[in-house]
């Protein structure tokens, strides 16, 4: 309790250093909390996107309905298939008419010259090559279209976002570490004479270190709470806008228990981070004192 009081007094006596430490930690935690939310949601978002691309197989013009139905049934029974949609010649014509308004062209095109097709989506991106293989070998299939680049692009962007998040966290984490080290170092340097006296009086290492360690822990806790608060306000503010995106809407609102777990874990990391950083800094200065 005495060490905590000493730490609080030290914080009160150096408001600008405290503000700098809390500000940088708050920014770090804000980015960390935002990034962790994106990461938690990204798997679900990725899954959503992975199920969007379809493999389309066009039947030969003379393929009968029984062959098409057989293939449809067979594909529906595959465990890795998410959805199967058959486009008949008539439906294909209807789509064509919606897309093309030129009357001359519409007069020339009839259902007979349009192929029926089957659209198959997988449960995830890894099942798509297998679906393509199944459709390639199926009876009556003329051509299989599979836009592999779309999946690649999604994976690439997700990975890119992850890398950006990790890089930001590493840079901000290092910056926070150094700033707390410098602030603790400055405080220890100011107290160098007092530390020397206390050591001669028989103070243990912990007795000398404790106020600084507590101070670091307070920075960690406050930084975490401010960062989380800012993230939460931002999340509340952005929720209506984010809900307008169909793919993100299913993830909102974020369950409160998830947010509480996030706050708990973040604050624990803050406490450990603050204590460790201050401890290292005091240890270094004590060796020189």
């Amino acid at each position: 309790m005495k060490h905590l009081t000493t730490a609080l007094t030290a914080i009160r006596r150096s408001p600008y250093q405290t503000f700098a430490a809390v500000l940088i930690l708050s920014i770090t935690f804000f980015v960390g909390y935002c990034f962790s939310l994106v990461m938690l949601g990204s798997e679900q978002m990725l899954r959503y996107f992975e199920t969007r691309p379809q493999i389309t197989a066009f039947f030969k013009l003379n393929t009968d309905q029984t062959t098409i139905d057989t293939l449809e049934k067979s594909m529906r029974n595959k465990p890795y298939v998410n959805q199967v949609n058959v486009i008949s010649k008539e439906k294909a014509l209807e789509i064509y008419r919606q897309d093309n308004k030129d009357p001359l062209l519409l007069e020339l095109v009839t259902a007979d010259i349009l192929p029926a097709s089957i659209e198959v989506s997988g449960k995830d991106a890894t099942s798509l090559p297998q679906i393509k293989k199944d459709l390639d070998g199926a009876a009556g299939v003329d051509q299989v279209l599979y836009n592999q680049e779309v999946i690649g692009a999604i994976n690439k962007w997700t990975q890119f976002l992850r890398n950006i998040g990790v890089a930001s966290m590493v840079i901000l984490g290092t910056e926070s570490f150094l700033i707390i080290m410098i602030i603790s170092g400055m405080k220890v340097a100011i107290q160098k004479r007092a530390i020397q006296i206390m050591r001669i009086l028989g103070a243990s290492r912990w007795y000398i270190k404790a106020p600084f360690v507590y101070e670091g822990m307070i920075y960690g806790i406050v930084g975490s709470l401010v960062g989380w608060g800012a993230m939460y306000i931002g999340l509340l503010y952005l929720t209506p806008w984010l809900q307008s995106f169909h793919e993100v809407a299913s993830l909102l609102p974020v369950p409160p228990e998830l947010l509480l777990i996030q706050l708990g874990v973040g604050t624990l990391i803050g406490v450990i981070f603050g204590a460790l950083t201050s401890s290292i800094s005091v240890q270094r200065m004590m060796r020189r004192a």
Binding site: R193, A194, Q196, I197, R199, I200, L201, G202, A203, S204, R205, Y207
Partner: peptide, 21 residues
């Protein structure tokens, strides 16, 4: 090193420059 403080508690030291806080 971790026990030096126990040893120092058995010794009182007075300096020329007092070393008061």
């Amino acid at each position: 090193k971790s026990q030096v403080h126990h040893h120092r508690r058995a010794i009182g030291v007075v300096f020329q420059d007092y070393r008061l806080l």
